[in-house]
């Protein structure tokens, strides 16, 4: 029994306890900002979130009340336009990476996608400003949606690739051995098996771009009224929050807090949805 005991046994125990305490502290520090942000937003913004906030247009300065209905709808429209661009290109790009590309072309595509993922969001705003806004001489919902869509492409492409690669090769082989063509195998077998993962990637990309402000500053521009024409400027929640937050009016500040709260809750809901989707089957198969 003596041989199993060692002189510095207690010192090792202390080191172990220290290490686990430090990592726990780090874990708490990870969660703390989220709690802080949420608490702060609730405190400042909850009072201004009411029925009018979701249903009314902004009121002129000095007039109490009003809401951000146009901005909420605008964010929805912008996300819709962005999805029309980002989802098909992103998903098909991911399919190419996972199913078709050669090792060499894939290396380059991944490299480019990772660079695109790291491009500061305001850069997309500037690029689209140059490409679309200057060309058509108008800020527009199309321009804003395009900037957001560009941001979605690499995000969706990489997540789609990853979930497709998780589908076991046995399913591809089984399908091809039935005389099913390559393309039908990919669409009906591989993508169907990975569909939850693909949808998860799309939702995460939407959550990521929903709060973007910088790419919209000189593309969608913002609008204090309803947007009747997608070729004209459109309001967006993050833009409205931005312009209200830097204004000198107390009432607008309260509305900005409310807007931020609504945005965070919206993104939170998307993330909960993702958790719900990835809960059962995807985990079992993939």
């Amino acid at each position: 029994m003596m041989a199993l005991r060692h002189d510095n046994h207690s010192w090792r125990k202390i080191k172990s306890a220290l290490a686990s305490a430090l990592s726990m502290l780090a874990a708490v520090l990870v969660i703390a900002p989220l709690g802080l942000v949420f608490f702060y937003l609730l405190q400042k913004g909850a009072g201004s979130v009411n029925w009018h906030f979701f249903t009314q247009l902004p009121k002129p300065v000095g007039e109490a009340g009003g809401g951000m209905a146009n901005a909420i709808a605008g964010t929805g429209e912008l996300l819709g336009i962005a999805s029309l661009i980002g989802i098909p290109i992103g998903v098909l790009g991911g399919v190419y990476l996972a199913e078709y590309g050669s090792a060499r072309s894939n290396w380059w595509l991944r490299f480019v996608a990772d660079i695109l993922n790291g491009v500061p969001s305001i850069t997309w705003g500037v690029v689209v400003y140059g490409m679309v806004v200057l060309t058509f001489k108008s800020f527009s919902a199309y321009a804003g949606g395009l900037a957001l869509g560009f941001m979605m492409i690499p995000l969706i492409m990489r997540t789609t690739e990853e979930v497709l690669l998780l589908v076991p090769n046995g399913y591809r082989e089984a399908s091809l051995a039935l005389g099913i063509s390559r393309w039908k195998t990919i669409v009906h077998i591989v993508m169907k098996t990975a569909s939850k993962g693909i949808i998860t990637g799309i939702l995460l990309a939407l959550a990521r771009i929903a709060g973007e402000t910088a790419p919209l500053l000189f593309t969608a521009f913002g609008n204090r009224f309803w947007n009747r024409n997608l070729a004209e400027p459109i309001a967006a929640l993050p833009l409205q929050i931005f312009s209200y937050a830097i204004s000198p009016y107390e009432d607008w500040h309260r509305q900005a807090w409310a807007g931020a709260l609504v945005l965070v809750v919206g993104i939170f809901v998307i993330n909960v949805l993702v958790r719900f989707l990835t809960r059962d089957r995807t985990v079992r198969i993939l």
Binding site: P168, G170, Y171, E173, A174, S175, A177, L178, G179, I189, K192, T193, S195, R281, I285
Partner: peptide, 14 residues
């Protein structure tokens, strides 16, 4: 015309 059955059974999970 030439079908195949594999080592590991692989019914499509969906």
């Amino acid at each position: 015309r030439v079908g195949m059955v594999f080592q590991k059974s692989n019914p499509f999970p969906t």
